[in-house]
Simulated scan of single mutants.
Amino acid sequence: MTSDRDWTGRVGDIWATEWRRTDRSFERLAPVLNAAIVAAAGPQAGTIVDIGCGAGATSLASAQALPDGQVIGIDLSPKLIAVANHRAGSLGNVAFRCADVASAVGMHAPVDLYVSRHGVMFFADPVAAFAQLDEAAAPGAALVFSCFAERAANRWAVETVAGADDASGPTGAMTAPGPLPLPIRPMSRRC
């Protein structure tokens, strides 16, 4: 699976180079996620933190749709943050930080809304990371994110494993950070 070191190095560099392709791959998801973010923000957008913001697409869409909010995109990759800053241009209500979101979020407290397009899947220790996010959350804060469901619910993952030489695929519980670490069940909770 993908580690912090991967995102601050080779993997993050590749994603920074391929950001346009990544945005295109999410072109059907983006309007749905962005609408959910705007709905959760309500009239008083406040402070919005984009977890694992990558090249900034979700942060920028949030900043444009919620001009009274302050959006902070946080990602581990210096090159992705450089792309996001370039894309932001003169948009005044968005800022990007190269940091581990779990350790950096306290500087932006209280956070009214957390958002993430697939970034929440990569916490090395999800329990500790979400505890940090909860500590920095304002009363009534919300979390809006997209992520993959368990491997069996993702046709592309099942077909990829079936097409490999070892069709048995991974066995046991996968606990490393990444898009398909553990079976999950949908849940909704306000902080």
Rank of each mutant, 00 (worst) to 15 (best):
P110H: 08
C53S: 15
D68I: 01
G12K: 00
M174A: 10
V105I: 12
R24I: 12
I74H: 03
A157Y: 12
R155E: 15
V105R: 06
E159W: 05
T160Y: 14
G89D: 09
V111H: 00
S188I: 12
A95D: 13
P183W: 11
D75A: 03
E27Q: 05
L133F: 08
G56D: 08
L91W: 02
P186R: 15
G42I: 02
A141E: 11
I74W: 07
F145P: 00
A99K: 01
A55V: 00
A35V: 11
A109N: 13
K79D: 07
I72W: 01
G119T: 09
L76P: 01
N154F: 10
S146Y: 06
D165Q: 14
E27M: 00
E159A: 12
R190A: 11
G89N: 09
A138V: 05
S188H: 12
E27F: 04
G140D: 12
G52N: 04
T58C: 07
H108A: 11
V105F: 02
D166P: 02
A142R: 12
V144K: 02
G52P: 07
Y114N: 06
R20T: 07
R117Q: 08
G169D: 14
P183K: 15
S62E: 02
G54V: 02
R21H: 10
P139M: 14
P177W: 02
R21K: 14
A41G: 01
G119Y: 05
L76N: 01
H118Q: 13
A104Y: 06
I184H: 08
A45V: 02
R87T: 08
G172R: 03
C147V: 05
P186G: 09
T58V: 13
T2H: 09
W156T: 09
A30H: 06
V161D: 15
P170H: 15
A136R: 03
L76R: 12
D134H: 12
S168P: 02
A82L: 13
P31R: 11
N34P: 01
L182W: 14
V144R: 04
A65M: 04
D165P: 04
H118S: 10
D75N: 10
A99G: 00
T17D: 13
S3K: 07
A95Q: 09
F122P: 00
R28Y: 12
Q64I: 09
A45E: 09
L133T: 01
Q132W: 04
A82N: 05
L133N: 04
N34C: 03
D50W: 06
L76T: 03
G92M: 07
M107E: 11
P110Q: 13
F130I: 09
T171L: 14
A149S: 14
M1T: 11
V38P: 01
C53K: 06
A84S: 06
E18S: 11
Q70R: 14
R155P: 06
S59L: 10
V71K: 02
G140Q: 06
H118T: 05
S90A: 09
P126K: 13
Q64S: 14
V127Y: 03
A102I: 07
A153V: 07
H118N: 15
A136Y: 07
R190M: 10
L143F: 09
A136D: 14
E150P: 05
G106F: 10
A102D: 09
A109Q: 11
F145C: 13
T8I: 10
V83I: 07
I184S: 13
A104L: 09
A164Y: 07
A136H: 08
G12E: 02
V83D: 01
I48F: 00
A55C: 03
A109M: 07
T47V: 15
A136E: 12
A164D: 15
